[in-house]
Amino acid sequence: MLDSYSGATRVIFIVGDPIAQVKSPAGVTRMLRERGADAIVVPAHVAPDDLADFMRTTQRMRNVDALIVTVPHKFAVADLCASVSARSRSIGAVNVMRRDASGGWFGDMCDGEGYVAALRLAGCDPAGRRALLVGAGGAGSAIAHALVDAGVVSLALHEADVARRDSLQRKLEAYGAVPISVGSADPSGHDLVINATPMGMRPDDPLPIEVDKLGPQTFVGDVVTVPAVPALLEAARARSCATMTGTQMFERVRDRMVEFLLAKP
């Protein structure tokens, strides 16, 4: 593992607003250096109004190889990339960018792929599952596309913002051949339930689904990382459901980020 830095060290910015809360700089830097890359991840606090200028500037910085993107910029940066992956094009969002062969930014979205990898490690292969996804924001959109890629037999979307839900449904119907439907807080008939909303971060948050209708065969996942075991997962475990935490997701998303950042154009 490389243990020193120099003027030759390559820079990867992680950009967000705010940025003080992110855990990625240390973890991703460590993984990159363990794999022999002389690189360091540096946090950059950039407001939305300054994002386009930041992107233009970093593209001109010859020692900047890549960017990691966090809230609220994942959708905005997609339009600032020279090219994006097929899933990022459908989602309309990007969370990692690296140089393409011409020096422009190539963007991709690792959140969903990381989530599916974490599900599999937790003992839940999405293939053949009937999934209910709560939340159609950035994380939910990425997870939805990854579930389609992973072979769920059906996917129901439950989202309070009807326009956002319907927009994601249209994107998914154009993206793959999996039946997409409008879901509800009732998980009956589903054997994979995922909360992709912030509900559960605060003690007084309502539960995102009707947990009393969970069967013991249902696998329940959450994206919330604090608390480590949110109320939804506590309730699911009380009903003998297998579960996966947001921290388990984050670890696998980090793995996918590193793989993307080390790939050659």
Score class of each variant (00 low, 15 high):
residue 74 K to Q: 07
residue 91 I to D: 06
residue 18 P to T: 01
residue 41 V to P: 00
residue 82 A to L: 09
residue 100 D to S: 05
residue 34 E to D: 15
residue 76 A to L: 15
residue 80 L to P: 14
residue 84 V to I: 13
residue 72 P to M: 14
residue 92 G to F: 05
residue 125 D to H: 12
residue 56 R to D: 08
residue 80 L to E: 06
residue 94 V to P: 15
residue 21 Q to L: 13
residue 113 E to H: 08
residue 53 D to A: 10
residue 115 Y to C: 09
residue 73 H to L: 09
residue 68 I to P: 11
residue 119 L to I: 00
residue 97 M to V: 00
residue 96 V to L: 05
residue 120 R to V: 00
residue 50 D to M: 11
residue 127 A to L: 14
residue 23 K to D: 01
residue 130 R to H: 11
residue 55 M to R: 02
residue 72 P to N: 11
residue 78 A to H: 10
residue 64 V to N: 01
residue 75 F to E: 15
residue 79 D to P: 12
residue 114 G to T: 02
residue 132 L to I: 04
residue 78 A to D: 06
residue 59 Q to W: 05
residue 34 E to V: 15
residue 111 D to S: 09
residue 91 I to A: 12
residue 29 T to R: 02
residue 40 I to Y: 02
residue 67 L to R: 02
residue 63 N to E: 08
residue 78 A to V: 07
residue 86 A to I: 09
residue 83 S to L: 09
residue 133 L to Q: 05
residue 80 L to I: 10
residue 41 V to I: 04
residue 103 G to S: 08
residue 22 V to P: 08
residue 76 A to Q: 14
residue 21 Q to G: 13
residue 87 R to G: 03
residue 95 N to Q: 14
residue 24 S to T: 13
residue 72 P to F: 08
residue 94 V to N: 13
residue 75 F to S: 12
residue 54 F to S: 09
residue 25 P to S: 09
residue 46 V to C: 02
residue 26 A to D: 12
residue 107 G to F: 00
residue 43 P to H: 00
residue 71 V to Y: 14
residue 83 S to A: 13
residue 76 A to R: 13
residue 37 A to R: 09
residue 133 L to F: 06
residue 117 A to Y: 10
residue 51 L to A: 05
residue 23 K to I: 03
residue 63 N to Q: 13
residue 88 S to H: 08
residue 64 V to I: 07
residue 132 L to T: 02
residue 24 S to P: 15
residue 36 G to W: 11
residue 31 M to N: 06
residue 108 D to K: 01
residue 105 W to F: 02
residue 130 R to A: 12
residue 59 Q to E: 08
residue 60 R to W: 10
residue 32 L to I: 02
residue 98 R to A: 03
residue 131 A to D: 01
residue 78 A to E: 05
residue 124 C to N: 06
residue 61 M to R: 05
residue 25 P to Y: 02
residue 54 F to P: 01
residue 24 S to H: 11
residue 51 L to K: 03
residue 82 A to W: 06
residue 61 M to Y: 05
residue 27 G to D: 10
residue 49 D to K: 15
residue 25 P to H: 04
residue 69 V to S: 08
residue 131 A to F: 02
residue 81 C to I: 10
residue 121 L to C: 11
residue 56 R to Y: 05
residue 130 R to W: 07
residue 69 V to Y: 07
residue 80 L to Q: 10
residue 45 H to L: 13
residue 31 M to H: 06
residue 20 A to E: 15
residue 39 A to G: 01
residue 20 A to N: 14
residue 133 L to C: 08
residue 49 D to H: 14
residue 50 D to Q: 14
residue 44 A to C: 11
residue 51 L to C: 05
residue 102 S to I: 15
residue 81 C to K: 04
residue 28 V to H: 02
residue 105 W to G: 00
residue 130 R to N: 11
residue 54 F to H: 04
residue 89 R to F: 05
residue 66 A to P: 00
residue 42 V to H: 09
residue 116 V to L: 02
residue 32 L to G: 03
residue 20 A to P: 09
residue 57 T to H: 07
residue 73 H to E: 09
residue 55 M to E: 04
residue 66 A to W: 00
residue 77 V to Q: 02
residue 126 P to F: 09
residue 128 G to R: 06
residue 130 R to L: 12
residue 79 D to N: 14
residue 44 A to T: 07
residue 104 G to W: 00
residue 106 F to T: 00
residue 28 V to W: 05
residue 59 Q to C: 07
residue 133 L to V: 07
residue 104 G to D: 02
residue 76 A to M: 14
residue 23 K to S: 05
residue 41 V to K: 03
